[in-house]
Design a protein around this nucleic acid. Structure first.
Lengths: 217, 217
DNA sequence: GGAATTGGACCGTCCGGTCGTTAGAATCCA
DNA sequence: TGGATTCTAACGACCGGACGGTCCAATTCC
């Protein structure tokens, strides 16, 4: 199989390159497989969701899944990749922007809240703790989340230096905010009363001024 | 076999009942099984930890585990029960105390941080999301955590009424703080630089006054 | 008509759980 | 006191079911 493919790519193409061999619905169907799997993973966990579950939810049988995907791990990898793109953008945007530290933090909070509030986000947070998928992949995402916390910590520290944030332990502040954000995946319900942007906004307010009433005017 | 036993129980007991031979190490060993399992569950997840893993960590074989425990689910149940006691005490203490709303919140944060920072705590948080153990048990603890959030929300609302907390959305504030607390289980390392009580203290400070510098004196 | 799709049946493995057995310590009794 | 008895604690081997994954034939559709 491997040699066939590489031969096809190099000298005498067994299959003409430009010739579309798959129906246009292929990509859509593949996407449906991944989206459905993400929903189930997020509801029941990776290990507790069988390929038959996914197939049943799509009204097909297991071999059909395998027509669109190599194996179960690949499905999870796709789910994670989908949310990870959003998260790296959040990190980039927050750290590159020309703002003071506190504004960067608030941008981070707002946009992370939106990025994580999806089935893919729930899926990532869930499977990064409990094992899921290949070991190397898992480590990559664990490392990724850790780096996200570090970025948050660093922009908190920046805010302390530039005076926009009151002196505190940047590491703890980052952990607290990051935890609040990731925990959204445990309770957020798309059909519930508040949407991700409102959640982010309310979190920003809390982290900015705290619970205690301010006397200042 | 049955008739022998019933005969033995009724008229002339062939074996005196109640004559329990002592097994002093039994309880200790059972505890070791549960503690070891908790450590492994917390590291690798419930489903990803096999009974052979637990046995190997104790230098015994699988049937030995079954000498101390009915089945795998029971181990998880024991782990959860061990942390749940602490959590209910936190809830009780926080809501019953004669303090204003904000002080109650701060008590909750401090003591919850300590209660959750154990292998058992990590185990609970981990397995309450992904499935683990009997379905009914799982629902019970999910419900329990939800109630904990509600208590937190209610004492925030109380604080708003008594003026110790600035007006805000109590539900969101509760979710944020509760998330920060539960997320401790994702990153806390007993060998790390800060202990649970310091973590709780720093969280309290953040939630009380927020990041923004206060001008008031 | 041939490639794109799909399903029925099947395989191998892993894992929770069980069975029968046993070494040896503790206890009992002649 | 020493042999017979009984119980603890542990193990090796095995079972059955679930689940990821595969084969191949059937079917559908451009």
């Amino acid at each position: 199989m491997e040699s066939e493919e590489s031969r096809g790519q190099s000298a005498t193409p067994l299959w003409r390159p430009g010739r579309r061999r798959r129906a246009p619905a292929y990509d859509i169907k593949r996407e449906a497989v991944i989206a459905t799997a993400a929903r189930l993973f997020q509801e029941k966990g990776y290990r507790n969701t069988t390929l038959n579950d996914i197939a049943a939810a799509l009204n097909v049988t297991k071999p059909t899944i395998y027509y669109y995907v190599q194996n179960k791990d690949e499905i999870l990898a796709e789910c994670r990749a989908r949310v990870w793109g959003g998260i790296t953008k959040v990190i980039q945007a927050a750290s590159d922007s020309r703002k003071n530290g506190r504004e960067k933090v608030e941008l981070f909070v707002r946009s992370y809240a939106e990025a994580i509030s999806t089935d893919y986000g729930k899926c990532l947070v869930m499977t990064v703790r409990d094992v899921g998928g290949a070991e190397a992949e898992l480590r990559k995402y664990r490392q990724g989340l850790r780096e996200a916390t570090h970025v948050l910590r660093d922009i908190v520290a920046e805010g302390i230096r530039d005076g926009s944030i009151a002196p505190c332990d940047p590491r703890m502040a980052a952990f607290a905010m990051y935890g609040a954000l990731n925990w959204i995946t445990y309770w957020y319900d798309p059909d519930g009363p508040s949407n991700p942007s409102e959640i982010g906004e309310e979190f920003v307010r809390l982290f900015r001024t705290g619970l205690k009433p301010r006397l200042e005017r």
